[in-house]
């Protein structure tokens, strides 16, 4: 079995933003050149997420609004203090919780050289504390 890992970066432009990364993933899988295996996509950050859903603007907006409802900005979070290890204020508790709800990764099967996806599935990088420079990885295990 072989391993292919690609790190892809992006600049988010909003505080909360849902970004279609499907084509970037398909390109990375093609670059790996494997016939069979598994494709794992993971964000490297704790205030962002990876999710899969139908690629419609209203669904995208509903996902963001759901995250606002689940972890609203105005709430008495414990994670609201100076973080000595960063030298900055750590005041984004809601961003971490939104990330925890959505999850950091997703997996697709790879078969006959193609990533197996439903026709309505779109892969998203979800920014929850932007704008920031972000990275996610595409890891293909197979042969």
């Amino acid at each position: 079995m072989k391993s292919f890992l690609k790190t892809i970066s992006l600049h988010s432009k909003e505080d909360m933003e849902i970004i279609d990364i499907t084509q970037e993933i398909l390109d990375a899988v093609q670059e790996a050149g494997f016939d069979l295996g598994t494709v794992h996509i993971m964000t490297k950050h704790t205030t962002s997420g990876i999710t899969v859903n139908e690629g419609l603007p209203d669904i995208e907006q509903d996902i963001l609004e759901m995250l606002h409802r689940i972890a609203p900005r105005k709430h008495n979070y414990r994670h609201a203090r100076f973080l000595h290890s960063d030298g900055q204020m750590a005041v984004n508790g809601y961003s971490h919780l939104r990330s925890a709800v959505l999850g950091k990764d997703t997996i697709f099967p790879l078969h006959d050289g193609k990533m197996v996806m439903g026709s309505r599935q779109t892969i998203y990088f979800v920014e929850m504390d932007g704008p920031l420079h972000r990275e996610y990885v595409v890891h293909v295990l197979g042969e």
């Binding site: 432009k13 909003e14 420079h133």
Partner: peptide, 20 residues
């Protein structure tokens, strides 16, 4: 001196932060 330990970010990201 300043006690800032997080990684720097690009001028582009900085300007996006001003925008938001």
């Amino acid at each position: 001196i300043y006690g800032l330990k997080s990684s720097p970010h690009s001028l582009e990201s900085h300007l996006h932060q001003l925008d938001v």
